[in-house]
Amino acid sequence: MSQITSNQVQHIMRLAKLRFTPEELEDFTVQFNQIVAYVEQLEQADTEGVMPMTSSLEELNIMRDDVPGPMLSAAEALRNAPKKTEGFFTVPKVIGEVEE
């Protein structure tokens, strides 16, 4: 069984730009491990010869025509943004180069 460390939780926290108190970090670490343990029960199922199921939907080929619909104004698009500057979302400086 894999074990999630508090360092890993901290890493996710930083990536998601969240801040936890030490108590919260400990709580979340416990919860992460509980979730992983819960999901790991699936490994007990015998899936030999079973087609992987990627969706519970029965339908196929749901597509739409290439016709524009309504869009949001910049003001509306930015309404929930904690910080904005002249029509841009503003986020803390991204340091370094991140590979896409």
């Binding site: 698009a77 910080k83 029509g87 841009f88 979302f89 503003t90 986020v91 400086k93 991204v94």
Partner: peptide
Amino acid sequence: IHDLDITNTLVDL
């Protein structure tokens, strides 16, 4: 956009 603002990164979607 990293070079328009000294302290922030600006995002255009």
